[in-house]
C-alpha cells in the first residue's frame, strides 16, 4: 500500500512537475527502525511519481560527518545528489508533518538550481570558506 494517498499523490506530483534536472537520493536505511522503513516507502512512492527522482538504496552505513558518532546514526540518512555529486544537503530520519513540504521544496530547489535568498556578505563568507562546516537543523514533525 502506498505511503501517500491518492489525493496527496496528485498534489506531490504537481509539485514535482516543477523539477528541471534529475535529483538522485542515496538512501542509507537503518535495519530494524520503523522510521527508516517508512522513509524507504516514501522515497519509493516519490520515485514513482516523477522520473526525475531517482533513489539508490545503499548497503553500508552512511558516511559519517564530524562530529557525529557511529552510534548516533539511529535512523536512515538520505543524501541529495545532483549530476552524480553530493549537494551537501541530507535528510536524517523521516520528514513527517509539515517537514514533508520542506523536504519536497529542497528537492525541487536542487533540481531547479534556485539561488538561496542570502545576503551578499553571507554568500562571500561561504564562497571563501576553507574549513569544514556542518550545519544540523533539528526539527520535529508538526
Amino acid at each position: 500500500m502506498p505511503m501517500l494517498d491518492e489525493s496527496l499523490q496528485k498534489e506531490v506530483a504537481a509539485l514535482l512537475d516543477q523539477m528541471v534536472d534529475p535529483v538522485e537520493i542515496l538512501f542509507y536505511p537503518k535495519a530494524g527502525d520503523a522510521a527508516s522503513d517508512a522513509m524507504d516507502e516514501l522515497l519509493h512512492d516519490l520515485a514513482g511519481l516523477n522520473s526525475k527522482v531517482a533513489v539508490k538504496r545503499q548497503d553500508g552505513p552512511a558516511p559519517l560527518v564530524a562530529p557525529d558518532a557511529d552510534d548516533e546514526i539511529t535512523s536512515s540518512v538520505s543524501v541529495f545528489m545532483s549530476n552524480g555529486k553530493p549537494t551537501g544537503v541530507r535528510y536524517l530520519g523521516f520528514p513527517g508533518g509539515r517537514e514533508f513540504g520542506t523536504f519536497l521544496q529542497d528537492m525541487v530547489g536542487i533540481s531547479t538550481r534556485v539561488a538561496p535568498e542570502l545576503s551578499p556578505e553571507t554568500v562571500r563568507f561561504i564562497e571563501n570558506l576553507e574549513e569544514p562546516l556542518h550545519l544540523q537543523v533539528f526539527v520535529t514533525p508538526t
Binding site: A35, V65, F138
Partner: peptide, 23 residues
C-alpha cells in the same frame, strides 16, 4: 559544507547530545 535536517525523534542520541528542547 554539509547541511542536515535532522528528525529529532528518530535521532534521539544526537538530540540528547545537544539537549534539543525546542525546534
Amino acid at each position: 559544507m554539509v547541511a542536515d535536517m535532522v528528525d529529532a525523534g528518530s535521532f534521539d542520541r544526537l538530540s540528547n547530545r545537544y539537549r534539543v528542547s525546542g525546534v
